[in-house]
Amino acid sequence: GATAVSEWTEYKTADGKTYYYNNRTDESTWEKPQELK
């Protein structure tokens, strides 16, 4: 099967917290998305 390329990108805020942003859905989350686990 084809490997899905994750749409999630990991970013850090100014105070060093990590969050994740999805370019396709324009969604952001503090929790690590399922695709990255």
Rank of each mutant, 00 (worst) to 15 (best):
G1N: 13
G1S: 13
G1Q: 13
A2E: 13
A2D: 13
A2F: 13
T3I: 13
T3F: 09
T3P: 14
A4M: 13
A4D: 13
V5G: 12
V5H: 13
V5A: 14
V5K: 10
S6P: 12
S6T: 12
E7I: 06
E7R: 01
E7Q: 08
W8I: 02
W8R: 01
W8K: 01
W8A: 01
T9Y: 09
T9M: 11
T9S: 12
T9A: 10
E10H: 02
E10G: 00
Y11G: 06
Y11S: 05
Y11F: 11
K12V: 15
K12S: 08
K12L: 11
T13A: 08
T13S: 08
T13K: 02
T13Q: 04
A14W: 10
A14L: 10
D15F: 04
G16A: 00
G16V: 00
K17P: 01
K17R: 14
T18E: 06
T18F: 08
T18N: 06
T18D: 05
Y19D: 03
Y19V: 07
Y19P: 02
Y19Q: 04
Y20E: 02
Y20H: 02
Y20Q: 01
Y20W: 15
Y20N: 01
Y20P: 02
Y21K: 11
Y21F: 06
N22M: 00
N22A: 01
N22Q: 01
N22V: 00
N22K: 01
N22F: 02
N22R: 00
N22L: 00
N23C: 04
N23F: 10
N23Y: 11
R24P: 03
T25R: 02
T25G: 01
T25V: 02
E27M: 07
E27A: 05
E27T: 09
E27H: 05
E27R: 04
E27Q: 09
S28Q: 12
S28A: 13
W30A: 08
W30G: 06
W30R: 05
E31G: 04
E31F: 08
K32Q: 08
K32V: 09
Q34D: 15
Q34W: 14
Q34K: 09
Q34G: 11
E35I: 05
E35A: 12
E35N: 09
L36P: 05
L36G: 05
L36Q: 06
L36Y: 14
L36T: 05
K37I: 15
K37F: 15
K37S: 15
K37Y: 15
